[in-house]
């Protein structure tokens, strides 16, 4: 396997590991606010790694730029959705979790 493909594979597996951790966070964290941390930060970084791997595999500048554009749009959409979810939860009076 050429070095580039190997590096791409490592990047994509790293991304998958972040997705896994993000999903574990979604399931384990105690309230909506904490879960949003896991989804917004961890999953987006995971996506970034996967897209970086794909860009490397394609070896084309335009494809890499297109993937970067996709990542930026996803970042924008998910931070917006995160803010709106947290805001809606607060306005609905969802109590934050406190360690007992």
């Amino acid at each position: 396997m050429p070095v580039v493909d190997l590096l791409a594979l490592v990047l994509m597996l790293t991304g998958a590991a972040f997705f896994f951790a993000g999903t574990v966070g979604l399931l384990r964290f105690p309230d909506v606010y904490c879960r949003l941390h896991a989804l917004t930060k961890v999953d987006n970084l995971g996506l970034g790694f996967v897209l970086a791997g794909l860009a490397l595999r394609s070896g084309l500048l335009t494809v890499a730029l297109k993937l970067l554009l996709i990542w930026l749009l996803v970042l924008l959409a998910s931070t917006t959705a995160c803010h709106l979810s947290a805001r809606a939860a607060r306005h609905l009076g969802v109590e934050p979790w406190r360690r007992a």
Partner: peptide, 8 residues
Amino acid sequence: PGLVLAGF
């Protein structure tokens, strides 16, 4: 919509 949604 609020600032964040409007900006989005």
